[in-house]
Write a protein that binds this DNA or RNA. Structure first.
Length: 216
DNA sequence: CAAACGATTTCC
DNA sequence: GAAATCGTTTGT
């Protein structure tokens, strides 16, 4: 069974894709063939009518990929020093994307990369900027297609590989008993009340813990 | 052309 | 609580 997610899978709203990406595996293939892998444990959706979306105002050089076909990579530089990686979603002409905010890196990946001196391994990709550092994602990946053999692709939940390294929350996810928290997004000045952030409850690789589920 | 800003992280 | 740091976007 093919585990690589096809681009058509992303051809729906970002709000629909974002929670479904939790538990999937982000794969980064370096030029030398090395693969870096991590389970997606936190996502945020950005779409039309959302004042926080980079495509809210108009099409620009930076956001143009969001206006195109789903299943492509949107990378941007934030605060002049970090990168954030998104997956473009929805049909052509419906600018939207899902920001990948945190990964639980595979043991093999942790062996491959160099951790900061005092960094806990579980926190190595806890946050959108740290995630891109760990996975060696930069602007070079802007506009690339998520496809097997490319610089990056995404694999469906619950592969045998995933069971091998995930913490106990993955088993729960397979059983359908995992708790996915839906709450408001991080670090915004606009659209602060839209509940378009999802993360795995109890996962120590998530960027921010304190945000609780939306009431009612 | 100048100025402000930002979907972050880290350190004081 | 505040600095670091720079390409993009917006205003004059």
């Amino acid at each position: 069974m093919e585990r690589v997610i096809p681009t058509e899978w992303f051809d729906r709203s970002a709000v629909s894709v974002a929670p479904d990406l939790i538990g999937c595996t982000l794969v980064r293939q370096l030029p030398d063939g090395t693969q870096l892998r991590g389970l997606i444990v936190e996502t945020e959706a950005y779409q039309e009518g959302d004042p926080a979306c980079h495509a809210y105002r108009k099409q620009t050089k930076r956001n143009q990929i969001m206006f195109g076909a789903p299943g492509y990579v949107y990378v941007y530089l934030i605060y002049g020093m970090y990168h954030c990686v998104n997956v473009v979603t929805d049909r052509i002409g419906a600018p939207s994307a899902v920001l990948i905010r945190a990964l639980e890196l595979s043991p093999a990946t942790l062996d491959t990369i160099s951790l900061k001196p005092k960094e806990k391994p579980i926190r190595a990709a806890a946050g959108p900027g740290k995630l891109c550092l760990a996975m060696q994602i930069n602007l070079d990946l802007y506009g690339t297609k998520l496809e097997l053999g490319q610089a990056m692709w995404i694999e469906h939940r619950a592969s045998l590989f995933q069971r091998g390294f995930a913490n106990d929350w993955q088993a729960k996810l397979d059983l359908g008993t995992i708790e996915l928290i839906q709450t408001t997004r991080i670090g915004l000045t606009q659209g602060v009340d839209l509940p378009w952030r999802w993360y795995v409850k109890g996962c120590k690789a998530v960027s921010v813990f304190e945000k609780l589920p939306i009431e009612n």
